[in-house]
C-alpha cells in the first residue's frame, strides 16, 4: 500500500506579509518557508501508520507543485521520514491548476491513500484536496480528525457541524485532514537529515492546464480603531458600552 501526502510550502505563520508589483505579488524577501502546518501533521500520521508493519504501508511519498525554491521544504519532509518526493516544476497558479497537476502525477502512479490539508495558510482555499478527488473520480472525506487502518479497512473520523462521524471508505481515497489527525508534528532527527540528502526528488514537468482563477491584487485589512480602555475596578462599565455604544449585546 502506498500513501501520498500533498504538501504546500507557506510563509512561516508569524510572517508579516507585504506585497510588491502593485500589490499583485507577495514580497518574499526574508520570508522563512515552512511545510503548511496541516501537511506536516498529515505526514506525521502517514509515518505513524507506516511504523505499524501490520498496516502494510510500503512507502510514503510527498508531492509538491512549485518551483525549485521549495526544495528545502521538500528535503525537510524527507528528513522527517518520507521515503521519496515528487515535485511538479511549475508556479502554483491556482487551486485547480495544482489539483490537476497532482492528478496527473497520481494517474501515472496510483496511491491508496492520498492526504491533503484542510487549508493552506497562504491561499486559504480549502479546495485542492476535494478537487483532486473529483479529478481522480475517487471518494473524499473532509475535515478528518483521525485516520486508522483496522483489519484492512479504513476508519476515519470527520467533524461535522455540531458533532463527529466515524466513517469507512474504500481505497483509493483522499483524506482532507484537520486538527487531531496527529498530536504533534514529527521532528527531523539527525539521522533523518543525513538520510534525506540521498533520498530521491523526482522532478516532473507540468501538464498544460488553464487556471480557473487569478489574483488581481491583495489588500491589507483595514486598521481597527484604537482600543478603548475600561478601568479594571469598574469592569462592569464595559457591559454598558457594549450594549449602548457598540450595540452588540
Amino acid at each position: 500500500m502506498k500513501v501520498l501526502v500533498c504538501i504546500s510550502n507557506v510563509p512561516d505563520t508569524t510572517t508579516k506579509v507585504r506585497f510588491i508589483d502593485d500589490n499583485r505579488k507577495l514580497d518574499t524577501t526574508g520570508i522563512q518557508w515552512v511545510i503548511n502546518p496541516w501537511d506536516e501533521l498529515s505526514l506525521t500520521r502517514a509515518l505513524e501508520l507506516k511504523d505499524v508493519a501490520s498496516n502494510g504501508i510500503e512507502k510514503v511519498t510527498v508531492a509538491h507543485v512549485g518551483s525549485v525554491a521549495a526544495e528545502p521544504v521538500i528535503r525537510k519532509a524527507l528528513a522527517i521520514g518520507a521515503d521519496d518526493a515528487i515535485r511538479v516544476n511549475a508556479e502554483a497558479s491556482d487551486a485547480y491548476f495544482v489539483a490537476s497537476q497532482l492528478a496527473e502525477v497520481i494517474k501515472q502512479n496510483p496511491y491508496d491513500i492520498i492526504m491533503c490539508g484542510i487549508e493552506s495558510s497562504d491561499h486559504n482555499g480549502s479546495t485542492v484536496g476535494g478537487m483532486l478527488a473529483e479529478l481522480l473520480g475517487i471518494p473524499s472525506v473532509s475535515a478528518v480528525s483521525s485516520l486508522s487502518i483496522e483489519n484492512g479497512t479504513f476508519v476515519l473520523t470527520r467533524e461535522i457541524d455540531g458533532g463527529k462521524e466515524n466513517v469507512q471508505v474504500p481505497a483509493p481515497f483522499v483524506a482532507v485532514v484537520q486538527k487531531g489527525i496527529a498530536k504533534e508534528p514529527r521532528i527531523a532527527a539527525m539521522r533523518g537529515i543525513m538520510m534525506a540528502r540521498t533520498k530521491p526528488i523526482a522532478v516532473v514537468e507540468p501538464a498544460a492546464i488553464e487556471a480557473y482563477t487569478e489574483v488581481m491584487g491583495y489588500e491589507m485589512p483595514k486598521p481597527r480603531a484604537a482600543c478603548k480602555f475600561v478601568d479594571a475596578e469598574n469592569a462592569g462599565q464595559l457591559i454598558a458600552l457594549l450594549q449602548n455604544e457598540a450595540k452588540v449585546l
Binding site: 510563509p11 505563520t13 510572517t15 508579516k16 506579509v17 506585497f19 507577495l26 495558510s121 497562504d122 491561499h123 486559504n124 487556471a211 480557473y212 482563477t213 487569478e214 489574483v215 488581481m216 491584487g217 491583495y218 489588500e219 491589507m220 485589512p221
Partner: peptide, 16 residues
Amino acid sequence: QKRAYSGNAFANLLIK
C-alpha cells in the same frame, strides 16, 4: 474578495 495569508490580507480574486 477572500481571506488570504490567514487573515493577514485579502485577495481580490478573478473567477474566469
